[in-house]
Amino acid sequence: MIQTQTQAAGGAAPPLLEIRNARIVYDHAVEAVREVSLSVPQGSVVALLGSNGAGKSTLLKALTGTLALEDGEVEKGAILLDGEDLGRTPTDRIVARGVSLVPEGRRLFANLTVEDNITMGGHLKGAADLARLRAQVYDLFPRLAERRRQIAGYLSGGEQQMVAVGRALMAEPRLLALDEPSLGLAPLIVDQIYATVARLNAEFGMTILLVEQNAMQAMEIADTVYIMENGRIVLDGPAEQMRGNLDVQEYYLGFSGGGERRSFRDVKHYKRRKRWLS
């Protein structure tokens, strides 16, 4: 079975991932993330929301050990997995410790088959485990079983996203991080992807960190929501509470106080944003 997480008995789940007062810079000068703290308890779904350029993907790069590839570094603070600072831990060791990323844009090997792409996610596994895990991925995504011999570059965007998720699951992650999984996909396909993510959490107890601009969709499956603007966390709380927050409804969900849908362009959010960032 895909590895599961169990919560501590008799209380709140301990954090599997914790980011403490992180300040992240590029080229020793450009500040992308400042004083960000967040917690991802075991067995939970945490959504990190915000517009493009807010700093969400930078946090994921820090978590997965790929920040240095873009001359970035965590200048201050810590990123803790099971209470241990990841520090300069290389990406392969982070994967071995149970963190898998579904990157923005999917980043498949376009000239390889669906099955080859999926198998690469389990490169640290033996043959028996590879067969078992592939069977589980095909159970989650029956369409991929039908297309296992097809070249990945010829799949639809939704099918490619399924391959990217399946590849990440081959490592049997304890923490699955998804970077903009709904980007560029039709609403029906987005629903299918999110249904699978919700199933991974509900049935297997998998811990999920979901980075999104699609706030409405993410809040439907999240337990906790953090909202980023300009490199900072400006709001956070339980998803149910956040869905009822008037600021979130107006700015992120596009509803006015009367409940009618409004154009994002017409939302009068500047005073609210000034208050959040003050």
Rank of each mutant, 00 (worst) to 15 (best):
D71K: 15
A131H: 11
E104C: 07
V46M: 11
I208G: 02
T196I: 13
Y154S: 11
D92W: 15
T224P: 03
Q192R: 13
R273F: 10
Q160A: 09
G184C: 05
T119V: 13
G126I: 09
M120W: 10
E18G: 03
A78L: 05
A222R: 08
Q217W: 04
V211R: 02
E260S: 05
L210E: 01
A54F: 13
Y251K: 08
L169W: 07
I227W: 15
A195E: 05
A78H: 09
A218L: 04
L49C: 08
V36T: 10
G205C: 07
Q213W: 11
R147M: 03
L277M: 12
R275S: 05
Y252Q: 02
P90M: 05
D71V: 05
L130E: 14
D129I: 09
I189C: 02
V33P: 00
I233Y: 04
E35M: 01
I193A: 01
V197K: 02
Y154I: 12
T4Y: 15
A47M: 13
R106E: 01
E84P: 05
T66S: 10
V33R: 04
G153I: 14
Q241K: 12
R23Y: 06
M216R: 15
E240V: 09
S57V: 15
I24E: 00
V74N: 07
A135K: 15
A177R: 11
R106G: 01
M162Y: 13
G153W: 07
E260G: 00
A177P: 05
Q217Y: 07
M242V: 10
M216P: 03
V46N: 06
M216G: 13
A9S: 06
I79M: 00
D85Q: 08
V45R: 14
T64W: 07
E84N: 11
G83H: 13
